[in-house]
Amino acid sequence: MSILQTTKKAVEQVTGIARPDRREVADLLRPRKANAFRFRDDGLVPNHPFWPLVVYRGAVTLPEDFDPAAVMEALFEANGWGDSWRNGIYNYVHYHSRIHEVLGVARGTAKVRFGGKMGRTLSLKAGDVAVLPAGTGHQRLSASDDFLVVGAYPESGTYDLCTTAAYHAKAVVTIPKVGRPRKDPVYGSKGPLLAAWDRD
Protein backbone atom coordinates (compact mmCIF):
# COMPACT_ATOMS: atom_id res chain seq x y z
CA MET A 1 0.00 0.00 0.00
CA SER A 2 1.35 3.44 -0.84
CA ILE A 3 2.25 5.87 1.94
CA LEU A 4 -0.63 8.12 0.83
CA GLN A 5 -3.19 5.30 1.00
CA THR A 6 -1.80 4.07 4.34
CA THR A 7 -2.09 7.57 5.81
CA LYS A 8 -5.60 8.12 4.42
CA LYS A 9 -6.77 4.78 5.78
CA ALA A 10 -5.37 5.51 9.25
CA VAL A 11 -6.94 8.99 9.38
CA GLU A 12 -10.32 7.71 8.18
CA GLN A 13 -10.37 4.92 10.75
CA VAL A 14 -9.44 7.21 13.63
CA THR A 15 -11.61 10.20 12.74
CA GLY A 16 -14.40 8.71 10.62
CA ILE A 17 -13.81 11.45 8.03
CA ALA A 18 -14.81 10.34 4.50
CA ARG A 19 -15.75 6.92 5.91
CA PRO A 20 -19.39 5.74 5.88
CA ASP A 21 -20.98 4.09 8.89
CA ARG A 22 -22.84 0.76 8.63
CA ARG A 23 -26.19 2.36 7.78
CA GLU A 24 -24.66 4.54 5.11
CA VAL A 25 -22.83 1.55 3.61
CA ALA A 26 -26.08 -0.40 3.34
CA ASP A 27 -27.61 2.51 1.42
CA LEU A 28 -24.76 2.39 -1.11
CA LEU A 29 -25.46 -1.19 -2.20
CA ARG A 30 -27.29 -2.13 -5.37
CA PRO A 31 -28.86 -5.57 -5.75
CA ARG A 32 -26.83 -7.56 -8.26
CA LYS A 33 -26.79 -11.15 -9.42
CA ALA A 34 -23.73 -13.29 -8.93
CA ASN A 35 -21.87 -13.67 -12.23
CA ALA A 36 -20.10 -17.00 -11.74
CA PHE A 37 -17.01 -18.18 -13.61
CA ARG A 38 -15.46 -21.63 -13.25
CA PHE A 39 -11.90 -22.44 -14.26
CA ARG A 40 -9.99 -25.67 -14.71
CA ASP A 41 -6.62 -26.54 -13.25
CA ASP A 42 -4.03 -25.54 -15.86
CA GLY A 43 -1.02 -27.21 -14.22
CA LEU A 44 0.25 -23.95 -12.74
CA VAL A 45 -2.96 -22.49 -11.28
CA PRO A 46 -5.20 -25.09 -9.59
CA ASN A 47 -8.26 -22.82 -9.28
CA HIS A 48 -11.02 -24.07 -7.01
CA PRO A 49 -12.34 -27.59 -7.69
CA PHE A 50 -16.02 -26.65 -7.28
CA TRP A 51 -16.55 -23.03 -6.20
CA PRO A 52 -16.64 -20.32 -8.89
CA LEU A 53 -15.21 -16.84 -9.03
CA VAL A 54 -18.17 -14.52 -8.32
CA VAL A 55 -18.29 -11.02 -9.80
CA TYR A 56 -20.85 -8.38 -8.84
CA ARG A 57 -20.98 -5.67 -11.52
CA GLY A 58 -21.65 -2.15 -10.22
CA ALA A 59 -22.65 -3.46 -6.80
CA VAL A 60 -21.41 -0.45 -4.85
CA THR A 61 -22.27 3.21 -5.39
CA LEU A 62 -19.24 5.43 -4.72
CA PRO A 63 -20.45 8.99 -4.00
CA GLU A 64 -18.00 11.88 -3.77
CA ASP A 65 -18.88 12.43 -0.08
CA PHE A 66 -16.83 9.37 0.89
CA ASP A 67 -13.39 8.04 0.07
CA PRO A 68 -14.20 5.13 -2.31
CA ALA A 69 -11.64 2.85 -0.68
CA ALA A 70 -13.17 3.55 2.73
CA VAL A 71 -16.58 2.57 1.35
CA MET A 72 -15.23 -0.83 0.25
CA GLU A 73 -13.39 -1.34 3.55
CA ALA A 74 -16.46 -0.49 5.63
CA LEU A 75 -18.63 -2.79 3.51
CA PHE A 76 -16.27 -5.75 3.80
CA GLU A 77 -15.72 -5.20 7.54
CA ALA A 78 -19.48 -5.08 8.15
CA ASN A 79 -19.68 -8.58 6.66
CA GLY A 80 -16.75 -10.09 8.54
CA TRP A 81 -14.07 -9.72 5.86
CA GLY A 82 -11.04 -7.94 7.31
CA ASP A 83 -7.26 -7.44 7.06
CA SER A 84 -8.02 -5.05 4.24
CA TRP A 85 -5.42 -3.40 2.03
CA ARG A 86 -5.41 -0.74 -0.71
CA ASN A 87 -3.34 -1.19 -3.84
CA GLY A 88 -3.57 -2.55 -7.37
CA ILE A 89 -3.46 -6.17 -8.55
CA TYR A 90 -0.11 -7.80 -9.28
CA ASN A 91 0.83 -7.98 -12.96
CA TYR A 92 1.90 -11.63 -12.67
CA VAL A 93 -0.21 -14.75 -12.18
CA HIS A 94 -0.73 -15.64 -8.54
CA TYR A 95 -3.27 -17.27 -6.23
CA HIS A 96 -3.88 -17.96 -2.56
CA SER A 97 -4.17 -21.62 -1.55
CA ARG A 98 -5.22 -21.20 2.09
CA ILE A 99 -7.68 -18.30 2.04
CA HIS A 100 -10.44 -16.69 -0.04
CA GLU A 101 -10.12 -13.07 -1.18
CA VAL A 102 -12.45 -10.23 -2.15
CA LEU A 103 -11.36 -7.42 -4.48
CA GLY A 104 -13.43 -4.24 -4.59
CA VAL A 105 -12.59 -1.70 -7.28
CA ALA A 106 -12.54 1.73 -5.64
CA ARG A 107 -11.27 3.77 -8.60
CA GLY A 108 -10.40 3.39 -12.25
CA THR A 109 -10.58 0.44 -14.60
CA ALA A 110 -8.51 -2.64 -15.37
CA LYS A 111 -8.38 -5.79 -17.44
CA VAL A 112 -7.75 -8.74 -15.14
CA ARG A 113 -7.23 -12.32 -16.20
CA PHE A 114 -8.74 -14.78 -13.75
CA GLY A 115 -8.10 -18.52 -13.74
CA GLY A 116 -4.61 -18.58 -15.26
CA LYS A 117 -3.63 -19.02 -18.90
CA MET A 118 -6.83 -20.95 -19.72
CA GLY A 119 -8.99 -18.56 -17.72
CA ARG A 120 -10.93 -15.47 -18.71
CA THR A 121 -10.09 -11.79 -18.99
CA LEU A 122 -12.64 -9.45 -17.42
CA SER A 123 -12.85 -5.67 -17.54
CA LEU A 124 -13.42 -4.27 -14.06
CA LYS A 125 -14.45 -0.75 -13.11
CA ALA A 126 -15.14 1.28 -9.98
CA GLY A 127 -18.02 -0.24 -8.02
CA ASP A 128 -17.35 -3.81 -9.18
CA VAL A 129 -16.52 -6.55 -6.67
CA ALA A 130 -14.87 -9.91 -7.37
CA VAL A 131 -14.90 -12.73 -4.81
CA LEU A 132 -12.19 -15.32 -5.39
CA PRO A 133 -12.34 -18.74 -3.80
CA ALA A 134 -8.97 -20.10 -2.70
CA GLY A 135 -6.87 -21.24 -5.65
CA THR A 136 -8.25 -18.75 -8.18
CA GLY A 137 -5.49 -17.31 -10.34
CA HIS A 138 -5.51 -13.59 -11.00
CA GLN A 139 -3.29 -11.18 -12.90
CA ARG A 140 -3.63 -7.53 -13.95
CA LEU A 141 -3.05 -7.20 -17.69
CA SER A 142 -3.64 -3.43 -17.92
CA ALA A 143 -5.12 -0.64 -15.83
CA SER A 144 -5.91 3.07 -15.80
CA ASP A 145 -3.48 5.31 -13.93
CA ASP A 146 -5.94 5.81 -11.09
CA PHE A 147 -6.79 2.11 -10.62
CA LEU A 148 -7.25 1.30 -6.92
CA VAL A 149 -8.48 -1.91 -5.34
CA VAL A 150 -9.42 -2.81 -1.78
CA GLY A 151 -8.73 -6.41 -0.88
CA ALA A 152 -9.94 -8.27 2.22
CA TYR A 153 -10.23 -11.78 3.65
CA PRO A 154 -12.77 -13.82 5.63
CA GLU A 155 -12.23 -14.59 9.30
CA SER A 156 -10.82 -18.06 8.70
CA GLY A 157 -7.82 -18.97 6.59
CA THR A 158 -4.17 -18.00 6.32
CA TYR A 159 -2.71 -15.69 3.70
CA ASP A 160 -0.15 -17.12 1.29
CA LEU A 161 1.06 -16.14 -2.18
CA CYS A 162 1.57 -18.87 -4.77
CA THR A 163 3.31 -17.92 -8.02
CA THR A 164 5.04 -20.97 -9.53
CA ALA A 165 4.42 -24.61 -10.37
CA ALA A 166 6.36 -25.57 -7.23
CA TYR A 167 3.28 -24.67 -5.14
CA HIS A 168 0.81 -26.71 -7.18
CA ALA A 169 0.98 -30.19 -5.59
CA LYS A 170 0.51 -28.89 -2.05
CA ALA A 171 -2.10 -26.34 -3.13
CA VAL A 172 -4.47 -28.90 -4.69
CA VAL A 173 -4.64 -30.62 -1.30
CA THR A 174 -5.04 -27.41 0.70
CA ILE A 175 -7.56 -25.50 -1.44
CA PRO A 176 -10.63 -27.77 -0.89
CA LYS A 177 -10.04 -27.61 2.87
CA VAL A 178 -10.58 -23.85 3.07
CA GLY A 179 -14.04 -23.48 4.60
CA ARG A 180 -16.93 -21.52 3.17
CA PRO A 181 -17.16 -18.03 4.70
CA ARG A 182 -20.09 -17.26 6.98
CA LYS A 183 -21.07 -14.15 4.99
CA ASP A 184 -20.96 -12.78 1.49
CA PRO A 185 -18.52 -9.81 1.68
CA VAL A 186 -21.03 -7.58 -0.15
CA TYR A 187 -24.52 -8.81 0.75
CA GLY A 188 -23.98 -10.51 4.10
CA SER A 189 -25.59 -13.65 5.50
CA LYS A 190 -28.16 -13.98 2.69
CA GLY A 191 -25.92 -12.99 -0.20
CA PRO A 192 -25.76 -14.82 -3.53
CA LEU A 193 -22.19 -15.97 -2.84
CA LEU A 194 -23.40 -18.48 -0.27
CA ALA A 195 -25.66 -20.15 -2.82
CA ALA A 196 -22.89 -20.14 -5.45
CA TRP A 197 -20.54 -21.74 -2.92
CA ASP A 198 -23.00 -24.31 -1.63
CA ARG A 199 -20.91 -27.46 -1.81
CA ASP A 200 -18.65 -28.33 1.13
Rank of each mutant, 00 (worst) to 15 (best):
V186M: 06
D65S: 11
L141Y: 09
D145N: 12
R57Q: 14
Y167S: 15
N47T: 07
H96K: 05
A10V: 13
Q13P: 03
S2W: 07
D160L: 05
T136R: 07
G58M: 14
T61Q: 11
V93I: 15
G137K: 04
E101A: 06
L75F: 10
P52A: 03
D198Q: 10
V102Q: 02
P154S: 06
Q5W: 13
V178M: 00
L4T: 11
V131Y: 04
A196N: 04
G137H: 06
T109D: 10
K177I: 05
D145F: 11
I99L: 09
S189I: 06
P181D: 03
S97H: 01
S156V: 10
A69F: 06
V60R: 04
A130P: 02
W85Q: 05
A165W: 15
R22G: 04
T61L: 15
G108C: 13
P68I: 10
T61I: 15
Y159F: 15
A166M: 14
V14E: 15
P46Q: 15
A195Y: 10
F147H: 12
V150E: 07
V178K: 00
L28D: 07
A134N: 03
R107Y: 07
V129W: 02
S144I: 07
A110L: 11
M1N: 07
Y95I: 01
A196P: 12
R113W: 04
A126T: 05
A126N: 06
L141H: 12
D42R: 13
Q139A: 08
L193A: 06
F66G: 00
V60P: 00
A134L: 03
A10W: 11
P49F: 06
P63A: 10
V11Y: 09
T6Q: 14
L103G: 01
K33F: 06
R98G: 01
W51Q: 05
Y187G: 00
L29A: 09
F37V: 05
T163C: 10
H168F: 10
T158G: 01
Y92E: 11
L148F: 06
V186W: 00
I17Y: 12
P192S: 06
P49H: 03
F50G: 09
V112A: 04
V131K: 02
S156I: 09
D67C: 08
V131D: 00
